[in-house]
Amino acid sequence: MAQSEQLLSLYRQMLIIRYTEEQLARSHQMGLIHGACHTYVGEEAIATGVCAHLRPDDAVFSTHRGHGHALAKGVSPREVVAELFGRATGCSQGRGGSMHLFKPEVGMMGTSGIVGPCILQATGAGYSFKLLKTDQVGVAFFGDGAVNNGAFHEGLNLASIWKLPTLFVCENNMYATEVPFAYSAGNPHVGNRGPAYGMESLTVDGNDVLAVYEAAEEAVRRARGGEGPTLIECRTYRTRAHAEGMRDGGYRTPEEVEEWKARDPITRYNEWLLKNEEAGTETLAEIEAEVKEMVADAEEFARNSPWPEADTVSEHVFNQG
């Protein structure tokens, strides 16, 4: 069970993700974000609960829906917002945008425009850490859609046969764009697939930050201790459209969306903290105000940041020493 201070930091982290993305959504509407923007609204508990156990030298590999992973792994809202604004001060110096957020300095090994590779790369990180005899871990975050990709099968099997220190965190939000997982997967469960690979696996409520926190705690402990990989299925839901500016009807009902909004991970956790007297309303309000301030600052920072210089465009294709 997490300590009081840790309990509040989980709350704060979820708010950082939520407020940053609500800002990104507004900025997208205003035309300040030029490319795609897939938000993580409704899924914040997962990145928050998992990354709470990670050190900066642990390696996270993420997806197209990766703002939350980057923020939870320690990329600042300033660097994330500036990156989506295409500015030189962004975490990828404006080269990447939403789907290419990199900050290896804190173990953020990249979001990705391609579904699948994060699973294999986290497996590779596990291989490195095993070979180097460190206690670092590799973590892949991926959607239900990626489970149907060959990378899932191959990555899990490789991690299993070599007992690699890797966490496979599936964010099952029930849809890949508009395609229901119930349609696209012959086995609609992910958390019960571990045994098929000779691997520990479990399913948790992905909208319950403490449930995710506890599952990840055990998985990270096992990975650091040489006991091998774990597959964690987190059941969750994205409450906004697949991407900003996209239609969000036709494939799911408004009732379903409302039902999941009622299970909002942040509201639920707020109520839990109050009910269990882990925090008072004043403390929580202070955190909210502080994070709002932080996000407003990030937006202003991004808006006032310089564009990248066009003549730098060919830098970094190859190693520059």
Binding site: H34, G35, G86, R87, G94, R95, G97, W307, A310, V313
Partner: peptide, 16 residues
Amino acid sequence: GAHVPTPYSPPLELAI
């Protein structure tokens, strides 16, 4: 087009 992966930021994209 320039012999580089495609960058995101509009001024970089325009340049290639």
